[in-house]
Design a protein around this nucleic acid. Sequence first.
DNA 1: TTGACATATTGACGCTTATCGATATGATGA
DNA 2: TCATCATATCGATAAGCGTCAATATGTCAA
Lengths: 106, 106
Amino acid sequence: MDTQSLVFAKAIADETRQQIMSHLCCVWLSVTDVVDKLDGKVNQPTVSHHLKVLQDAGLVFVRQEGRIRWYTLNQERVTMCCGQLVSQFAPDYAASIIPVSAIEQR
Amino acid sequence: MDTQSLVFAKAIADETRQQIMSHLCCVWLSVTDVVDKLDGKVNQPTVSHHLKVLQDAGLVFVRQEGRIRWYTLNQERVTMCCGQLVSQFAPDYAASIIPVSAIEQR
DNA sequence: TTGACATATTGACGCTTATCGATATGATGA
DNA sequence: TCATCATATCGATAAGCGTCAATATGTCAA
């Protein structure tokens, strides 16, 4: 069976991780930044752990700069994984959400 | 925060549940049918448990007929939840996967 | 009504995982 | 080199969850 949809699902199946994803959407943040954004909900080792899970799932980009490690959300990956989920579990609807680009080529 | 995406993610974040979803895609099956399809992987109470999780997440339709309870996958719900995920976590891509119907109305 | 079938529920068990404190690793500036 | 900052890793703990055997509930046919 396809393990990709499972890895994706497990990665996003946690509230803290979804909050981290929200904060990493469209911006680059350091680990400390993320900890601050979560405002005391969890501490630094926990954030590092979640970032590793997200990284293993290919859901974040990482960029090292000096002693700071910058993270941002991989929106394309999210889109692809969701597209795969629809293909697998909503084939009757898959055709209706194909990319605009593919339509405008008609 | 939005709890909808979390319920959906948790519901699909299990291999057995994803297999059940695959088997329930486009067809109506009884609990016994699903147990048979899984071919000994898990037994009946476990299947009932998973079906309840899927039902609580709104991911299956249920239809009672005599002593048989028929289940099928709610593909529209899958599509909506995936759309919500993209809106939340891939806003830069959300515009490029809007429904064809919305495009053809231009 | 009774027995058989279909499904749900319960309680227990074990595994996974989220979390933390403590510590290690790594990089920078003085 | 040394102190400091940023992040990762480790070990322990607790909570969540998937699974099963046993049993309960519900439905139908005889």
